[in-house]
Write a protein that binds this DNA or RNA. Structure first.
Lengths: 211, 211
DNA sequence: ACAAATATCAAACAAGTGTTTTATACATAC
DNA sequence: GTATGTATAAAACACTTGTTTGATATTTGT
């Protein structure tokens, strides 16, 4: 491993992350990646075995970022009431999701959801499951139900779905619903999701007596 | 146009719809479609000009189905209170989305959202925009805000996001959150989204005074 | 300094893509 | 019946894909 090697290797990782996030695994060619990284066409196969090897390594850094966000969002709520923990979790999550200039991580994960590759398992186990389990625990505490109660899981799905919905996307764009990533707007969105969701959780549980 | 012609043409449409829904526009080859339809490789180009022509025609039937669902969901709430109109709209929508055995339509639209083709415009204008505008009007009526109020639009996004979230997907599957499409479960999910959302809408508006 | 391992490069490979061509069957109209 | 427009078929075309090859630098260990 020479210094130059590391440089080429990391340039490939960087270019690959950018392109995979923008257009998905299958739609990006190794030639594009190598051109973007100013490397030879054979570079990907030499350094990562094959295209999927490069993708896996890129995805792992995305997964690590998910875990980090997860930890930060949990930490933000320590010692608070369950409602407030939920609010802070949503806030941190939305800020990371919508507020960072580089949302490569989330775009990668989002792509993986819609066109799974063999690397999906790692995302689910290391990135998504911890998130769902924490939210389930929180909603269970709020409602007094079991974390595995179907009503709890539905609430978690509702919360998670909203958090992802406010990412810029071609449809919202075409509808003129540009959610510009202003700092103020960001807080408003996070506040919206939190308020909307907390009220939703309470309503769903109040509607039917706790089993 | 002989009878045999019509048969081949419609076989191509059928096979294309099935395959495009399952794997998206780019991932399906013309050869696959023609094989599935027991037609020659040149059949697609002969009958539809090119691959995109076939896709456009398939997608148009999906758009028509969206409009039909939209109309039915509106009709279901005639003469009711705004809250009840919203509840019924969500119910109809969720039933169509999750309850039909053949969800080709929604899978096609979903794919188009995540990897847009030149045909996305038609979906947005004819399928999505009417839906958003109706929901905006409804939420505006519930809250007393303008339909173009940012808070109203955020609520609409929250509602729509939840409706789409409960579709079976590889991640929910891997997490063991199998939402089996039972009839009972279907009603529960629709009820959950409606109750959760109506409470959410009221909470979001109560929190900040109406402008 | 020299040999061995490592990294880069241009070129080619094998497989697959959408599309076009050319020829043949088929139906319908005159 | 023959001509005409339509539909199907096999083959080839032009191009792109991920990957491999073999040669040439470059760095490293001694």
């Amino acid at each position: 491993m020479t210094e130059r090697d590391l440089e080429t290797r990391s340039r490939l990782l960087e270019a690959g992350a950018k392109l995979f996030a923008a257009r998905g695994f299958k739609d990006v060619t190794v030639r594009e990646i190598c051109h973007e990284a100013r490397a030879n066409v054979a570079a990907v196969n030499y350094h990562f075995g094959d295209k999927l090897g490069l993708y896996r390594e890129i995805l792992q850094t995305a997964i690590d970022a998910m875990r980090e966000t997860n930890d930060a969002a949990r930490e933000a709520g320590r010692g608070q009431t369950a409602d407030e923990q939920l609010r802070r979790y949503i806030t941190i999550f939305v800020q990371r999701l919508l507020g960072s200039k580089d949302d490569t991580v989330h775009r990668l994960v989002s792509r993986e959801i819609n066109e799974p590759t063999p690397a999906l398992d790692a995302i689910v186990e290391q990135g998504v499951r911890p998130r769902i389990e924490y939210l389930s625990g929180l909603v269970a505490e709020i409602t007094g139900c079991s974390p595995s109660d179907q009503r709890v899981l539905r609430c978690v799905a509702s919360i998670q779905a909203q958090s992802l919905a406010f990412r810029p996307n071609p449809i919202a764009e075409r509808l003129g619903l540009v959610m510009s990533p202003t700092r103020a707007n960001l807080e408003e969105v996070a506040d919206h999701i939190a308020t909307f969701s907390i009220a939703g959780v309470h309503a769903v549980i109040d509607r039917v007596p706790i089993s």
